[in-house]
Design a protein around this nucleic acid. Structure first.
Lengths: 182, 182
DNA sequence: AGCAGTATGACAACATGTTGTCAAGTTCAC
DNA sequence: GTGAACTTGACAACATGTTGTCATACTGCT
C-alpha cells in the first residue's frame, strides 16, 4: 500500500530496491483483487447469484458436465467447498446431478435450462465490464502485466522458506531456477 | 450493449481484443492472488499466526496504536472482522487495548513486547521471500505491472453496471473519464 | 445547552474457504 | 483375481469475511 520502501518498520534489513518493487506489486495485487472481488459480487448479485457460484456455473458451461472433484481441481480449491456450492445450485434449480457412467459414486453436475440462461446473462455482464474498462488501458501493458502476475504467482508458489527460523537449522535459500521475466 | 463504438477500422485488432486482454488480466490476477495468499498463510503459520492477523499486527506496527475502526478503514474491510482479530491478538498476548484519550468507547490497540517480536519476525520472513523472488523479475516490468493493477482496480471500482439488464431502464453506461494507462 | 446525526463496539447470522475424518467406489501392481 | 492405495462424497469443525441491528459515545449545528 505505501509505495514507499518504508525503511524497515521493525528494523529488518537494509533496503533492496528490486525486492521493494516486488513488495509494491504484492500490495497492488491485494488491492486490485479486493476491488475486483467486490465488483464481481455486485455483478453476480444483480442476477441473484454470487461470485463463487458463477465460478461453478462457468466451469460447467465451459467444460461441460463435470464431477465436483473435477471442478475443484480445475479451480485449485478444496472439493468440499465446491460440493456445497453444487448442492446449492441444484437446490436453486440451476443445475442437476446426472449419472456418471464412469464413476458410480461421483455424478456429473450439469446445467439446467435456467442455469444456462443465468450463466449466459452473467458472462454477458462480465463482458460488458471488460469492454467498459478496456478503452482506458493499453492492451500491450495489460498483457505484460498479466505475464508478470503469472511469473510472480509461480515464483511465490515455488519459494518455500524453511519453517524453522527458530530452529538453528538454516536451509540453503530458496532454489529458483526460472528465467528473469521481462 | 457497451456504448463504446470500439473503433476497429479495418486492420486493427478485432472488436473485443482489448476486452479480451482485460479478461486475461483478471484471471491472472485471481490466480496470482490465490498463490500469494497460500504463500502468506504458510509464512505466517510458521510463527503460529495467520495472514489476517499479520495484517493487523503490521498495521499497528507501522502506524502506531490504533482503534479497531481505524485499522478497518485503512484496510478497507468491515470493522467487525478486525474487531474479532484484535480480540484474538489480545487473548494471545500479542496486543492489548489501551485507553484512548480521544474516545471513551474506542480503545487503542497496541502491541505488547511479544507482539512486536513476532511482527518483526514475520516481516523479516516476508522480506526474505521478496528478496528470493526479486532476482527473477525485471524491476521495471514489476513496477509497470503494479501501475496497471492500480489502474485496473480503480476502473473496476468505478464501473457500476446498471442492475437491470432485463429491465427497460437503461442507464447511460459506465462513465470512465480517466486517462489510458500505458 | 440540547438535539440530531454519525461513529463505534457488541452480538448474531450467514457465505465461503479451509482441514480432518470416515466409508465406500475405483485403480493399479502383483 | 486380489489387496493396497488412491479417489470421492458426506459430515464436522473452524477461520475469516460479509451484512444487519442495537445501544452508547461523540460531533456539530442551532
Amino acid at each position: 500500500m505505501p509505495r514507499e520502501p518504508d525503511p524497515s518498520p521493525a528494523g529488518v534489513a537494509p533496503p533492496d530496491s528490486a525486492a521493494a518493487s516486488v513488495v509494491e506489486l504484492a500490495w497492488a495485487l491485494l488491492d486490485a483483487y479486493t476491488r475486483m472481488k467486490a465488483a464481481s459480487d455486485r455483478l453476480t448479485a444483480a442476477e441473484g447469484q454470487s461470485t463463487p457460484r458463477l465460478g461453478v456455473l462457468r466451469e460447467v458451461a465451459v467444460h461441460g458436465p463435470s464431477t465436483v472433484a473435477q471442478i475443484a481441481r480445475q479451480r485449485g480449491v478444496a472439493r468440499q467447498g465446491i460440493q456445497r456450492l453444487a448442492d446449492e445450485l441444484v437446490d436453486a434449480g440451476l443445475a442437476r446431478f446426472t449419472p456418471n457412467p464412469a464413476h458410480q459414486r461421483s455424478p456429473l453436475l450439469a446445467l439446467t435450462r435456467a442455469g444456462r440462461d443465468v450463466t449466459r446473462r452473467l458472462l454477458a455482464r462480465q463482458d460488458a465490464v471488460a469492454r467498459a474498462i478496456a478503452p482506458h488501458l493499453e492492451p500491450t501493458s495489460v498483457r505484460q502485466a498479466a505475464d508478470v502476475l503469472r511469473a510472480f504467482g509461480e515464483l511465490v508458489s515455488s519459494v518455500d522458506l524453511p519453517g524453522g527460523m527458530r530452529g538453528a537449522r538454516r536451509r540453503p535459500a530458496p532454489r529458483l531456477t526460472g528465467r528473469v521475466v521481462r
